[in-house]
């Protein structure tokens, strides 16, 4: 049944990317977070260093050894290793939320859900396909954004300060573990919401006002850890990954065709 699942994944991706408006909403968040915000930050740091008393204060809080590095270089490092990773908890969720929110209720509104349910896929497989489609989408956007950001920030910092950017080790657990885990949790919750929603609007509101804050709060708890230790980050990512897995497993058994069709 892999052919069926991949057909649904492809169809869902195509549905989003073929719609310019939806594509725009997916692209705009990563562009702002990985290009606009860092650029503004870097330019401000470069052209107005004297006014940055607050930053000098912040520097004093840093461990002793970093205080010797040049001020601007330090700021770039601070931005790149401690603030930008946080964005990669937001980007994948934002990228996939439209797709995840419309996953079931969108099909129901188009009257195509019943047709899909007449397929030889089980409801579990269908649910899995829907989560997979949104998850792959989120990871795709996340990785492209990462590469774009690496190039953009690296280039800017090189031009402005002459320093070559060295991404910190904590990026590895963030991109490979933490971001996928958080994203999978959010997507599973949003797809579940979509299966129970009466219309796409409701599903999107649920996603925006319930799932997103909860997930970000959860993830936010661990951001401080990025300052501390990459291994701690790995451990917490694994915990979140397991949580995501159990959440997905439990959601798979929750629905039957009749419930999906009526949205209750």
């Amino acid at each position: 049944m892999n052919r069926a699942i991949s057909a649904i994944v492809k169809k869902d991706m195509r549905e989003i990317t073929a719609n310019r408006q939806l594509l725009f909403t997916i692209v705009i968040v990563p562009v702002v977070l990985t290009l606009v915000v860092p650029s503004v930050f870097l330019l401000t740091a470069h052209f107005a260093p004297e006014d940055a008393n607050d930053l000098q204060e912040l520097m004093k809080l840093m461990p002793g050894n970093v205080q010797n590095i040049g001020m601007e270089e330090l700021m770039v490092g601070l931005l790149f290793d401690n603030i930008l990773p946080l964005f990669f908890l937001i980007i994948p969720i934002m990228a996939a939320s439209v797709m995840a929110a419309s996953s079931f209720v969108g099909e129901r509104e188009q009257s195509t859900l019943e047709t899909l349910l007449y397929s030889p896929l089980t409801v579990k497989q269908l649910f899995y396909a829907k989560v997979l489609a949104a998850f792959l989408m989120s990871m795709l956007v996340s990785w492209i954004s990462f590469l774009v950001m690496l190039l953009g920030v690296g280039l800017e910092s090189y031009v402005l300060t002459g320093a070559v950017l060295h991404p910190g080790i904590s990026w590895l657990p963030v991109m490979l573990l933490l971001s996928p885990a958080v994203s999978l949790i959010a997507i599973t919750l949003i797809v579940r919401g979509s299966a129970k929603a009466q219309n796409v609007m409701e599903a999107q509101q649920k996603a925006a006002f319930l799932v997103l804050p909860v997930v970000l709060l959860l993830a936010g708890q661990f951001v401080g850890l990025m300052l501390i230790n990459a291994w701690m980050l790995v451990g917490l990512s694994v915990v979140l990954g397991l949580l995501a897995w159990f959440l997905l497993r439990s959601s798979l058994g929750k629905f039957c065709g009749e419930m999906l069709l009526s949205g209750r």
Binding site: R3, A4, A7, N19, S111, E114, T115
Partner: peptide, 23 residues
């Protein structure tokens, strides 16, 4: 109530449902 996708052509729709049936 079992409709197909408006943004796909007739042929694309049929090929999609074929794939869903493993063809």
């Amino acid at each position: 109530h079992a409709q197909m996708y408006n943004h796909l052509t007739g042929l694309e729709n049929l090929i999609f449902y074929g794939a869903v049936f493993g063809i």
